[in-house]
């Protein structure tokens, strides 16, 4: 049994909150550059250039890439041979978020209650998804989620008869409806199968992948490619102002499902695809 002190977790989450919000991951930067090379719209090119410049300004000044520094969504893979000591694990993760958002001058976007709506003042609580895995390590991913793209995300419970065609139509309809709201070029996370909540979680988790890394299953990888191609024919373009580059990638994750169902969740990410992870 390996011991990990909560202080180590607090420090890690603080640092991840900062880096996820202030630095565009290199794969994302490269994907935007590749998008710029193939964009035909002059307005679209200008938008992509400004997004690349934005990443440089943010990094130089230690500023957030976007004012919507998001809801702090955390994936925590907890090795079953780890003993967390010195305090409560969830409290430690929340303390890391609290410190990161304060020290990074990041915006506090959480309200206490969906109807009362009083800002909690420290961007907590985080939304934490735990998974117990073999081993004696902890993997923590901080994926700040802005609500321009979150609000445009959607889930549908299709029937088995709807099949692959139904999946494609639904994904396209979500992207089309989102338009400029989700800050394209997007990365489109898709969760296929499982139960209702499992599909949503798969879609969110798919956004933690590096841009354009295909699903290991060849058939699913082909579907990702086909969907990306279809999405980029919609004409929405960078910032929704028209163009060829509406999405940088489609990431699909799947899970076995019920004989009667075909759940499909689409979780959109803006161009920044913010996530940072560490293995302790």
């Amino acid at each position: 049994m390996r011991e990990i002190q909560v202080n180590e977790i607090i420090d890690a989450v603080e640092k991840l909150s900062l880096s996820a919000n202030q630095r565009l991951n290199p794969d994302v930067y490269q994907a935007l550059q590749a998008g710029l090379a193939r964009e035909e719209s002059q307005i679209g090119k200008d938008v992509l250039q400004k997004l690349l410049l934005n990443a440089q300004v943010a990094q130089e000044k230690g500023m957030a890439l976007c004012q919507d520094t998001g809801m702090a969504v955390i994936f925590c893979e907890l090795g079953q041979n780890v003993h967390v000591s010195g305090g409560d694990l969830s409290a430690a993760i929340n303390e890391g978020v609290r410190r990161g958002y304060r020290s990074g001058y990041l915006r506090n976007s959480m309200v206490n209650d969906p109807l009362e709506r009083v800002n909690t003042g420290d961007n907590t609580p985080a939304v934490i998804h735990y998974e117990v895995v073999p081993g004696e390590k902890i993997k923590i991913t901080v994926a700040p989620k802005g609500f321009g793209s979150e609000n445009s995300s959607a889930l549908v419970m299709l029937t088995p008869a709807d099949g692959e065609e139904g999946v494609k139509q639904f994904v396209l309809s979500v992207v089309e409806k989102a338009g400029a709201n989700s800050c394209p070029p997007l990365v489109v996370g898709v969760g296929l199968g499982g139960s209702m909540e499992k599909a949503a979680l798969l879609a969110k988790h798919a956004l933690c992948r590096s841009v354009g890394v295909p699903n290991e299953n060849e058939k699913i990888a082909a579907l990702e490619k086909e969907l990306l191609n279809s999405i980029n024919k919609l004409g929405i373009g960078p910032a929704g102002l028209g163009g060829r580059v509406t999405a940088l990638a489609v990431h699909i994750e799947t899970f076995p499902t019920h004989i009667a169902g075909l759940p499909v969740a689409v979780n959109l990410s803006c161009h920044a695809l913010r996530h940072a992870e560490i293995i302790l």
């Binding site: 934005n54 976007c66 400029a180």
Partner: peptide, 12 residues
């Protein structure tokens, strides 16, 4: 329209 996601640039 301002560019969504260009918050650092617009702040300047």
């Amino acid at each position: 329209g301002a560019i969504g996601g260009a918050g650092a640039l617009l702040a300047s």
